[in-house]
Design a protein around this nucleic acid. Structure first.
Lengths: 143, 143
DNA sequence: TTGTAATATGAGCATATGTTCATATTAAAA
DNA sequence: TTTTAATATGAACATATGCTCATATTACAA
């Protein structure tokens, strides 16, 4: 983790920047550094079994990332907004297939759309997705 | 990211320790801090579309995390080794169902088993799984 | 060896999933 | 208004998935 103006960054083990978040204040960061002064003294932060609701939400998110078409859509949107026909080109599937998957991703609130003329322009809903994508790619690249 | 004796730690936005890795040397860490001196100046580390192989591996990993039984199994093992009958109790499904899912997780190399008498004792294969689990739970808890 | 506990696995079944096809909708152009 | 481009969506279909049931295997005990 590295901080700069209140931003938290996730890095992979080979120091690639995975994602950033601005949800923590500088004070919290300071607190963090005190609490985790020696990370090796504590077990990995695995607590009790999450609630059914959290388990459901988590598996829903992982499901959304578990298909190659959706994965490509999300990876593409990670670089910036794209319309459906662009995603269709990038992912190499039919317009219908992309639209159906985009609907699924919208229902999960992983992507959001806005109209620009005839086009529907999609973007990632938040940085969480980005973080998971990057961690996933990073780990998939190592094995 | 925080370093201690060559260990890299992942933290969530509210400063929970998500996971650690020891795969980077202190020199690499130092290099990292130079390269990423101002994280906000660079876009999130989203590069080109990964290769088909990496996409396949990544979606395989996400698939494994996308089922509640497997998710519970992995979360349980995150706390330490467990045998099949213990996992059966924790997950609340049949012995056969647990065994089938464990086989799937073994095939993905997400868990590994060893024999202890009549028992088969399972553990997580590596810290990557742990990291994804924690990031997933963390994000699922926020929404 | 026989019996029992723990685990693994093949077959079958019900459901979920991802795609295609046809068609509807939306927005701009002619 | 009519036409065309872009997108959305319902239905259908093939495949994948997760479970159960029955049974096999493994390890230990009697």
């Amino acid at each position: 983790m590295k901080t700069s103006k209140g931003t938290i960054s996730y890095f992979s083990s080979d120091n690639q920047l995975l994602c950033q978040t601005d949800q923590a204040s500088a004070e919290e960061l300071l607190l963090c550094q005190i609490e985790h002064a020696d990370p090796e003294q504590e077990a990995c932060s695995v607590g009790a079994m999450p609630s059914d609701e959290v388990i459901y939400k988590a598996t829903q998110i992982f499901s959304a990332l578990a298909d190659s078409t959706r994965f490509k859509i999300l990876m593409s949107l990670a670089a910036g907004e794209l319309c459906v026909c662009e995603l269709q080109e990038i992912c190499g599937v039919s317009q219908s297939a992309v639209s159906h998957q985009l609907r699924l991703l919208r229902d999960c609130d992983l992507v959001r759309a806005r109209r620009v003329g005839q086009r529907a322009v999609y973007r990632l809903a938040d940085s969480h997705v980005l973080c998971l994508l990057n961690v996933g790619v990073q780990h998939a690249s190592e094995a």
